[in-house]
Design a protein around this nucleic acid. Structure first.
Lengths: 217, 217
DNA sequence: AAGTGGTCTAGACCACGCG
DNA sequence: GCGTGGTCTAGACCACTTT
């Protein structure tokens, strides 16, 4: 085991099989993961080559902000998780069971290289998971906390994207002029816990850092 | 074989195996495709349920505009494919072989329900594929043409998204005010033909129709 | 011809939902 | 307990690239 420089080829799938005493199917699943996250490119008949990792925020992948690379990041909690009624802004249909309870809401502001870049509103059902404290977030990451403390993993997401003019609140937090264009992303995360979803409304200043996405297969 | 209404469950994977005389692996690959395209949801221990197809443009998937559902769509060619130097606007690194030749460029304006929604600039290397005529596009689709006439399939895409203010050109074509927020998407499509990429710069009016995306696994 | 990734068959075991 | 989807082993054949 080791580290492979950008541009070099990984061992062939069959060699990796021997090295880790496993099968092609499993090795290929692992390589597909690397492919999807932009670490390698596969070349039919030639091999799998390490490519330079994409820059920019990588927001659109399910991995979440904390795992985006290559930038100095900081997150400020603007609103501790609190129980309150569901918000009209959520553009996804809530399930009946979700609607029976309240929402746990929290708000964060995320900085990249010292500049406020993303304003984030988050909700989840208080019937499915207790109220957490932001100070308990593992390494500041909500996803890591769900994974390690509750064995809840992200399975996927649906997103709607809009270019909008910043309203007063967004402009204030992102330190931009009112009316400046911001990228508004509505996300519904599905999780490994049945019926448990996370909803996020994100407002993003993309003038310095574009949001990136990759799609494979 | 038949059609399954929204909300109903598909036969189990084992039943599908018998029905089509194939194996779990293959059936699961097919179901994962349906999952990724938002037709079904899988529920561990219960089954796979047909869900209502997502609305909105579905632009961010690799499938392309023509396969987005549920809207009346029309495409107008603003600029026939022509050979010209590569454009500075493309934010992706071009390969050395691409830079040796010119680009084939074409421009399209796409309407949804009678309103202009997307302004699209497209480039590909003239060294890798001949110049096509827009009138030869199969069902108006560039991707279908590549697939059926040249056996070139889309394998994936990288995208960068920005919220911007419409400049004069974009405002004119999208019939919006200058300075209004538009979603700017830069796309690099990878294809099954080695070294052959498609580059698109898309400007999208998202005030009526948000752009949607799904991400699974 | 040999080696690579792409796809497939065949079958095992596990985790989850439900009766 | 049983059927479901999730993951894995083991191995075959094909398409593509390189020597």
């Amino acid at each position: 085991m080791g580290t492979y420089p950008v541009g070099s080829y990984l061992p062939s799938e069959n060699e990796i099989c021997e090295q880790f005493d496993t099968t092609r199917t499993t090795v290929r699943r692992a390589l597909d993961e690397l492919l999807k996250n932009g670490f390698i490119e596969k070349e039919h008949g030639r091999g799998s080559r390490v490519v330079e990792r994409r820059k920019s925020l990588g927001l659109l992948t399910v991995k979440g902000f904390s795992e985006a690379l290559d930038h100095n990041k900081r997150t400020v909690i603007l609103q501790e998780p609190t129980s309150q009624p569901w918000d009209d802004r959520i553009p996804f249909r809530l399930s009946e069971t979700e609607k029976e309870g309240n929402a746990i809401y929290f708000q964060r502001l995320r900085y990249v290289n010292g500049k406020p870049i993303m304003l984030e509103h988050n909700w989840y059902s208080d019937l499915k998971l207790q109220q957490l404290k932001a100070s308990e977030f593992i390494e500041g990451s909500f996803f890591k906390t769900l994974s390690q403390n509750f064995l809840i993993e992200m399975k996927g997401s649906e997103q709607e994207l809009r270019a909008e003019s910043a309203n007063a609140e967004v402009a204030r937090f992102l330190n931009i002029e009112r009316g400046a264009p911001v990228l508004h992303i509505s996300i519904r995360f599905t999780t490994s816990k049945p019926g448990f979803y996370l909803y996020s409304e994100v407002y993003c200043n993309t003038s310095r850092y574009p949001v990136s996405n990759s799609y494979f297969l």
